[in-house]
Design a protein around this nucleic acid. Structure first.
Lengths: 280, 280
DNA sequence: CAATCCTGTATCATATTTAATACAGAAATC
DNA sequence: GATTTCTGTATTAAATATGATACAGGATTG
């Protein structure tokens, strides 16, 4: 009756893209032939073709008439990684440049989810800002912050575009004492897809962070959405103790530890890396 | 020419679902009318209708002829949360039951990404297993592990279905000394969507973990995919030190600290929670 | 009760997606 | 060089998604 599933060509495209990224089809080697792919996925060759067209237009594969379709190993621009236990630190550049675009700014009546998270009084308003963070001119995160109105008034709209929010808060004499972060995944909607330069329906890494002052009142609510191909979280752990007391402890990212595995069944990665964990 | 984007009805569906989950449309209150939604999204009413049909069939909204469409506040079954700094601990149940289904098991020539991550010799084979983890009979994670062949031989296929892999490895006398975890997001492909009970194209939270022994050799490569509506990572942080030395430290999840913000622009959450961080 | 706004339902037209099929030309194999 | 296998291209038909429109009937408002 009603079919809300993605079109078949898209399915095949996603599948192949994933397999290429995960290294299942090795670079410089060939993919199965179009007829083979068609049969494997139960679709027609025309459909397979459309998926391949897309991959080719993104530069992921190379097609040689008569020969086959080949994975274009190469400069898969690697994602930055944020040290998840230190995501609150300022963003330190490593030759790369990050800039911030302020997409929207204003005072609103926050949705109930935010009221609850920040423990606001009913009808208390918040300053809501939407920012886009770019690296080398390429957007990689979409940030929606809510700050209680009285706090938000302590800095200007222009400040937001240049200074990390937490720093602004602390300058105002506020103390960020505790924070709670949750990491999940969502799909890009029309509103988030466009500024991030993605299609609607792309996968996004999401982080929600609530920062509290010593009294337990909420200071900041951040909803961050990341392009997983440009940003991911990393946490390095070290075993400590012995016997039953053995447990894992986060360690300050041992640099150059390994060719670290990438997330999301994606590309193998030599890591250019950033010296310190980055914020937002 | 070629359009690989999801159908419009799906876009609207995703958008609304996100807004409902994020609390943007409050529970027990009404959504904009069908004509309004149609205009806002630049689609016809018929299309909006299809999106609403889907939401209704999932029980997220309630439609009252003549009156409007209402958000069905309710028992949005909350996601489990894993303490991200402790994801290596065993899974401890809290009244809930987890079981494991072994979907596939065998020895393979691993893709290059795995070879690199585990620092295998070229042509060294790995034991690859695919497992599905369920809670209360509902799947929430899809796990692909690769272990160097010589190590994998130290335990049986049946062991895998009952015992956490890391425990098996340590029983064999191996020492897990260091681990590296990367968290990202992907889309569900046909292969992962089906066992997880999702549609193709759904968002997945992904974690890649590589465990090393003291010599720096890779012991285990885990690629985990989570349903974000059933599982998410959480990290609680506490400010320590003073002045320039101020920094954030992970803290063992302070229970009942707040109505914690949820990930992915999703539902507000009272948290039933698990006592200890869970594995995989 | 009348006016209005909403959802439920149906019909018809159009654009797009998918499939089935055929054939040309490039590349690899023997 | 002949054969096979592959991609490039085109044409057709069917299925599907989308849009435009109309109207019935419940809910709400005044």
């Amino acid at each position: 009756m009603t079919n809300l599933e993605p079109p078949k060509a898209r399915r095949v495209y996603l599948l192949l893209r994933d397999r290429i990224a995960s290294g299942e089809y090795r670079a410089r080697s060939s993919l199965p032939s179009e007829p083979a792919l068609a049969e494997q996925n139960g679709v027609s060759r025309v459909t397979v073709r459309r998926a391949l067209d897309q991959l080719a237009s993104e530069g992921l594969i190379e097609r040689r008439p008569g020969a086959g379709t080949f994975v274009k190993g190469g400069q898969a621009s690697l994602p930055m990684t944020g040290d998840i236990s230190n995501v609150l630190a300022h963003l330190v550049e490593m030759g790369q440049t990050t800039e911030v675009k302020l997409l929207s700014f204003g005072y609103i009546v926050p949705p109930p989810a935010i009221v609850e998270a920040l423990r606001l009084d009913p009808d208390e308003r918040t300053q809501r800002s939407v920012r886009l963070r770019l690296i080398d001119g390429q957007p990689f995160s979409y940030l929606v912050t809510n700050v209680p109105e009285r706090i938000g008034l302590s800095y200007s709209e222009a400040d937001l575009a240049s200074t990390p929010l937490l720093e602004l808060l602390e300058r105002s004499g506020l103390v960020a004492e505790r924070a709670s972060q949750t990491v999940g995944a969502t799909l890009a909607g029309p509103d988030t897809a466009e500024p991030l330069g993605l299609e609607v329906g792309a996968a996004l890494l999401s982080m929600t962070r609530v920062v509290y002052d010593p009294s337990g009142k909420g200071i900041e609510h951040l909803q961050a959405l990341y392009r997983p191909d440009r940003y991911s979280f990393q946490l390095d752990l070290q075993r400590t103790g012995a016997g039953d007391a053995r447990s894992w402890k986060p360690v300050d990212r041992p640099r150059k530890v390994a060719a670290p595995a990438r997330s999301g069944r994606r590309a193998p990665a030599r890591r250019p890396a950033m010296e310190k964990g980055s914020a937002e």
